[in-house]
């Protein structure tokens, strides 16, 4: 209690975790995958907060509703899977998705295009790979099968090099399409594909919160207290539509922040953030 009373600011990481958590509906089955500490914390926060009936499937262990001892930097760890109520096998999780019973999945990319297609496979082309990325795990399958997808990235902000060039995270095109969004690279709509799921409906970045418009195009929905439309446009390679009801993203409550800090004493989630972003704090409103 005393701790909570002292919490007067939240970090960027905690704001992103809260925003990801807000995308999670109560009563669904959701899977946090691996290499995704912000998402892992968001699922636990959602379950404790507004989604008590969430069927929370831990990535890599496939344990259901665990109470992690603490967040570890490696996802397939007993600490992450402590007291899981029951377990799925790898085939069962993916079968649930294929049969339309995975409510939400969380995916990221080194390149994210305007339709929500993403690349985590490689930069370069078929003849020459300039950067081999780790690969997408089951993201390719789940981007088609999951009912909904939340996209997240903590590296939206770009910096120009000495020649004024930028390597965009939200980019015009993906060098390789690992997971699918609302339209193919050629602009053909998702409706023409026999996918189960309806695609991404939310992107949470280090600069703001985004949705998708009627055409399936990324659209800015909410700023953070220290970001602006201009700043976000500068870090986005494609032209960015802005929602008519653009708002400022809500900050988490002190008890939520306290919960996150307790669950992640090693601050693993901050490893997703740039060192500059680890210094971003937001003043909570007076109670």
């Amino acid at each position: 209690m005393n701790n909570q009373n002292k919490i007067q600011t939240c970090t960027l990481g905690e704001l992103m975790i809260y925003q990801i958590a807000l995308s999670i509906e109560d009563g669904i089955l959701a899977f946090h995958g691996f290499g995704s500490p912000l998402v892992q914390l968001a699922l636990h926060l959602a379950k404790r907060n507004h989604a008590p009936n969430l069927v929370l499937v831990a990535g890599a262990t496939y344990g259901i509703n665990p109470t992690p001892a603490f967040l570890t930097p490696t996802t397939n760890d007993f600490a992450m899977n402590r007291d899981a109520e029951c377990h799925l096998t790898i085939e069962e999780l993916f079968d649930l998705a294929a049969s339309g019973r995975l409510g939400r999945m969380f995916l990221s990319g080194l390149q994210i295009d305007r339709w929500g297609n993403m690349n985590v496979t490689r930069l370069g082309n078929d003849e020459r790979i300039s950067l081999k990325l780790p690969g997408g795990g089951g993201g390719c399958n789940l981007s088609a099968d999951a009912d909904h997808v939340t996209i997240w990235t903590a590296a939206h902000r770009t910096h120009a090099d000495e020649h004024g060039r930028r390597r965009y995270r939200l980019a015009n095109r993906c060098d390789f399409i690992t997971s699918v969004g609302h339209r193919t690279a050629e602009g053909l709509p998702r409706a023409g594909m026999p996918y189960r799921g309806s695609g991404p409906d939310c992107i949470v970045t280090d600069l703001g919160v985004f949705g998708f418009n009627q055409e399936g195009h990324v659209q800015l929905r909410a700023l953070y207290p220290d970001t602006s439309v201009e700043m976000i446009a500068e870090s986005t390679e494609f032209d960015l539509p802005v929602a008519a009801d653009l708002s400022t993203a809500a900050l988490p409550e002190p008890e939520m922040i306290e919960f996150i800090r307790r669950l992640d004493p090693l601050k693993i989630h901050q490893r997703e953030l740039s060192s500059a972003d680890r210094g971003r704090f937001f003043q909570l409103k007076e109670a």
Binding site: C140, S143, A144, D145, F176, I177, T178, M193, R196
Partner: peptide
């Protein structure tokens, strides 16, 4: 059979 993968570059 699966539904996914089409629309991605894994087919290449």
């Amino acid at each position: 059979p699966i539904r996914s993968v089409q629309g991605t570059d894994f087919l290449k």
